[in-house]
Design a protein around this nucleic acid. Structure first.
Lengths: 334, 334
DNA sequence: TGTTAGCACTCTGCCTTGTTGAGTGCTAAT
DNA sequence: ATTAGCACTCAACAAGGCAGAGTGCTAACA
C-alpha cells in the first residue's frame, strides 16, 4: 500500500462522490497530474481491487469505491471541512432562537439544508431519568393540574377533570407526600409497596393517585419525538432511481428505525457505511449518527445518504452542530 | 346528459382510479354489461369529451377523467363507503389511547394506513385563544416554573433560572396580580399600558415579567406542529414516476404548504381537485382537507393523492375520523 | 333516428439490432 | 518499473419494425 495507491483511491472516491459515475484510469490520468500514465494507474487500480477497496461494476467499466474503501477513507484519509463564517453564525442564531421551542425540528431542517441529505433528529427521555418534583394545583372549580418535573427543565403536565377537587391546601399537602416518596426515584423504583404506602397516605384522596402516577410515567417514558427533513433529496440520487427502493427507504425512515442503533457516547460522531448497517435497505446507504444531552433529555441525530455521501462535509456539519450547541448551552449557564 | 353518459363516466372514473390506464370503449363494453356496443359507447364518450368531462391523452388512446369529470363525480356521483367494524374499533382505540399524547401524529399514521395516501395533520393555536390562568411556582433554590393555561387543557410551561428567586408566597402574590390583569385576554389585549401597569404592580420583581410574558406569548402563538405520514405511497403511483416531480412534491409537503389554505368550518370535508389547487405541483394532485377543534386548539387534516385518488374511500375515512373523535370527546365530557 | 358492425388509420410500447465510446487486461517495447 | 498499443467487453443510445389497443367514420340495420 504505497503513497500512490492512496492518492489514486482518494481520487476515485472524490470523483465518485461528485459524479456517481465509475471512474476510469484515463479520467484520473487527465484530471490529476500524478505524473504517471493511465496504464500505470490501471495496474495500481487492479491492486486496489484485489485489496477490496474498489469494485468494478462490470468487466469493462471504471471503478467504484467499495464499503471497505469508504471505511478506509473515513478512518484515515478524510479532511475536516469547517463551516463558513456565515453558516456558523446562522447556525448559532437558530440554536438560540429555538433553544426552548422546536429545537429538534429546526436542527433537522438546518442539517438537511447544509448537507442536502435526509436528516432525522429524535429526542427521548434519558433511560435513567429521575423524578425531581411533583406539583398539584387547582385550575378552576372542576379541574386540577398535575405537574411533574423530571430532570432540570424537563416538565410534563396534565389537567385532570374532577367533580369535587380538593382545595389548594389539601393539594399542597398531597404534593408534599408525593415529593417525600418520589424524589430522585426512577420509573423502576415505583413498585407495589411504594404505591400501597402512597395509597394509604392519600387516604380519602386515593382516587387521585392513579392519574398522577400515569402522568409521572409519561414524564419518565421515552416518548421519542422524531423530526425528519430533506428526505426529498434521495430522489435526486441516481442510485435511488428505482421508486420501489426509495419507497422502502422512506418507509424505513418514517418508522424511525434509523436511530434505533443506540449511541452510548455523547459528542462522538459515528459512521456506518453500507453493509455495516443492519436494516436491509440501509445497506445501500451510509448513516452518520451523533447524540447530545439537552434539557435533561437525550437527542440523537442521524444523517442518511447513499454510501457515496460527502462524508467530510456531513461529519463537519455534525461536529459544528455539536460544538455550537455546546457553546450556546455553556454560555447560558453563566 | 342522459343516464347512460353518467354510467359510462362512472365506469371510466372507477376503472381509471384502479388502473391508472386510459379506458377504451371496448374495455367498458366488455367489463360492464350496459347492453350497448362499443361503438355506441364511443359516440357517448365523444360527447363526454366535448363536455370537458374526459380527456384523450393522444389521438388513439382511451379516455381519462378530467378535473371537471372528477368534480362532477365527487359532487354528485360518489358513494359513501363506511369503515369496517374492525377498522372503526381500531380507530376508536387509537383515539382513546392517544387522546392526550401524540394524537396528531397517530391520526396521520392511521389515515395514511387506511387510505394509502400521504397524510398531513397539523395542530395550531386558535387565533382567538385567550389566557385562562397563569401560575408561578418554585422548583428548587435556583429556579421557578412559569405555567400558562390558555384554553381548557392547553398548557404551556417554562422553567426560569434565577439567582435569588422569590419565595412561594411572593410568587403566589405575583400570580394573583397576573391573573387579575390577564384573565380572558388575547395576545392583542396585552398592550403597552397593560404592561406598564403590571411592571409597576410587580415592584421589585419587575424583572420577572418579561420572561413571563414571553411564555404567555408562546402559549398563545400558533406553533403549528405538523405530522406527516405515508409520503412513500407517492412513489408507487405511475403518474409520479418522474423523480423530479416527487421531489418537488415532497418538498412542498415538508414545507407544510398543503394546509395553508384555511378551512373555516369544523367538521366539513373539503376537496380540491388538480387545477383547483394553487400550488403548481399540487395541480396534479387532489387534496382532501378537514378540520376539528381539540384541546382548545385547531387541528387540520390533509390527505394528498393523485387526482385519480379514491375519493369515496378518502372522504369516508375523513368522516370516520371526525365522527369517532367527536364520539370519544363527548363521551368523555360526561 | 338511434344503434351497430366493419374498416382504415393512429399512436404507444416494446423488442431487436447496430453502433459508439469508455474502459479494461495483456503484451511487448522502453 | 513504466508505458504505448491492441484486442476485447460491455453499457448506453438510436433506429427500425412490429403488435396491440383504440379511435373516427361510413354504411347498414331495426
Amino acid at each position: 500500500m504505497n503513497d500512490r495507491k492512496i492518492k489514486i483511491l482518494e481520487a476515485i472516491i472524490n470523483d465518485y462522490i461528485r459524479t456517481a459515475e465509475p471512474i476510469g484510469s484515463r479520467t484520473i490520468a487527465k484530471r490529476y497530474n500524478f505524473g504517471i500514465s493511465s496504464a500505470t494507474i490501471r495496474n495500481e487500480m487492479s491492486d486496489l481491487e484485489d485489496m477490496g477497496l474498489i469494485i468494478q461494476p462490470h468487466t469493462s467499466s471504471g471503478r467504484v469505491p467499495s464499503d471497505l474503501g469508504y471505511r478506509l477513507y473515513v478512518d484515515s484519509l478524510m479532511h475536516h471541512r469547517p463551516l463558513t463564517e456565515d453558516e456558523t453564525i446562522s447556525l448559532q442564531r437558530m440554536i438560540m432562537k429555538h433553544l426552548d421551542r422546536d429545537l429538534m425540528r429546526e436542527i433537522a431542517k438546518k442539517i438537511a439544508y447544509l448537507t442536502q441529505y435526509a436528516t432525522i433528529v429524535s429526542e427521548s427521555a434519558e433511560p435513567h431519568a429521575v423524578i425531581k418534583y411533583v406539583q398539584l394545583m387547582p385550575i378552576d372549580d372542576h379541574s386540577i393540574l398535575i405537574i411533574v418535573v423530571t430532570e432540570i427543565k424537563s416538565v410534563k403536565n396534565k389537567p385532570l377533570n374532577l367533580d369535587d377537587p380538593p382545595d389548594y391546601d389539601t393539594l399542597a399537602q398531597l404534593a408534599r407526600l408525593l415529593n417525600a416518596a418520589l424524589h430522585n426515584k426512577t420509573i423502576k423504583d415505583i413498585d407495589k409497596p411504594l404505591i400501597s404506602a402512597l395509597l394509604a397516605a392519600f387516604g380519602p384522596h386515593a382516587h387521585l393517585l392513579i392519574p398522577i402516577l400515569g402522568v409521572i410515567e409519561q414524564a419518565l417514558q421515552a416518548d421519542n419525538q422524531t423530526y425528519t427533513s430533506g428526505v426529498n433529496n434521495f430522489l435526486a440520487f441516481p442510485e435511488f432511481a428505482d421508486p420501489a427502493k426509495v419507497q422502502s427507504l422512506l418507509r424505513t425512515i418514517e418508522e424511525g428505525k434509523i436511530l434505533s442503533a443506540h449511541l452510548d457516547e455523547y459528542g462522538k460522531v459515528q459512521i456506518t457505511i453500507g453493509r455495516e448497517n443492519e436494516t436491509p435497505i440501509l445497506q445501500e446507504c451510509s448513516v452518520v449518527r451523533t447524540a447530545f444531552p439537552i434539557h435533561g433529555k437525550r437527542a440523537t441525530i442521524g444523517i442518511i445518504g447513499p454510501t457515496r455521501m460527502d462524508y467530510s462535509q456531513v461529519v463537519s456539519v455534525a461536529h459544528a452542530v455539536l460544538t455550537n450547541l455546546n457553546a450556546v448551552l455553556t454560555a447560558l449557564k453563566k
